[in-house]
């Protein structure tokens, strides 16, 4: 219990100086675990690393001695046009090496998000996407994909609308998500969340979301125009944290 209180205090303290727009553990824009219809700016590229609590991971594929373990992933993502985002992600897996469990293996996957409808004054932005498309691509380009796993694969459609509340920006996201693997079906169905970007520090964002199975709180921020950080508590007790370097390849500068 004491540990949870410490995490919560750290999170609340972090809200003041922090926030962005990323479902950061994949490098694709979104909330924390929940996808949204927000997009990075055209030309944005991210390279980052994210600590993943075992509660963020599938129940299969990330176990050792029948117990799930914490791990981390790293990614490279890019927004070549304002309507599409692509990401390549490696998630480390544990294996026994000389009698010692070590992070020697990894799951490679790719994500894509497309936004067919841009947010307007009266309508929300709408995006569709897929995480872990690697197996889909592999099945298209080769017949020998028997070893390809689908640990993270899911498809989704999301809508996001922002409201200006006296300079503060409130974002509301609603999404429908479908995981293709049974062991992830707890995150299937309607998911969503809200974000709050304060007027006095618009680079920061506070997030609350429903993943389909539990609530999650988080904060993220773009600092010094290039350093993006995100911290979250899954189910109010399991921490996740990530750091990425962000730059715009078109040479444009954005505050957030």
């Amino acid at each position: 219990m004491k540990r949870h209180i410490i995490y919560s205090i750290a999170l609340m303290l972090g809200i003041l100086p922090l926030t962005g727009r990323a479902q950061q553990y994949t490098g694709i824009s979104g909330l924390i675990h929940v996808p949204s219809a927000e997009m990075h700016h055209e030309g944005d590229a991210n390279i980052g690393i994210h600590y993943l609590n075992k509660e963020m991971l599938p129940d299969i594929g990330f176990t050792y001695n029948n117990e799930k373990y914490n791990t981390y992933d790293y990614y490279l993502s890019i927004t070549p046009y304002s309507w599409i985002e692509l990401s390549y992600i490696c998630t480390k897996r544990m294996d026994l090496v000389n009698g010692e469990p070590k992070y020697r293996r990894k799951d490679r996957n790719a994500s894509i998000k497309i936004r067919p409808l841009k947010e307007g004054k009266y309508w929300p932005a709408v995006a569709i996407g897929c995480n872990d498309v690697g197996s889909s691509v592999a099945s298209l380009i080769t017949s020998s994909n028997n070893n390809v796993q689908l640990y993270f694969q899911n498809y989704y459609a999301a809508a996001t609308k922002h409201f200006d509340l006296g300079g503060n920006i409130l974002g509301v996201t609603l999404a429908y998500r479908y995981y293709t693997r049974d062991y992830n079906d707890k995150w299937n169905g309607l998911v969503g969340g809200i974000t709050f970007r304060p007027s006095f520090f618009p680079q920061a964002r506070a997030i609350a979301e429903w993943t389909g199975n539990e609530f999650q709180l988080g904060i993220d921020a773009l600092l010094f125009q290039h350093v993006f950080i995100q911290a979250s508590l899954k189910d109010f007790k399991y921490p996740n944290v990530g750091l990425s370097f962000q730059m715009n390849l078109l040479g444009k500068r954005y505050k957030y």
Partner: peptide, 25 residues
């Protein structure tokens, strides 16, 4: 290929009669 200010990023796919399909960036 998408060309940016000082960089270019591409996605590609190829096929050949020996190794079948491949792709990448």
């Amino acid at each position: 290929i998408r060309h940016f200010r000082h960089s270019s990023v591409s996605l590609y796919a190829n096929w050949n009669n020996k190794d079948d399909f491949d792709g990448g960036f």
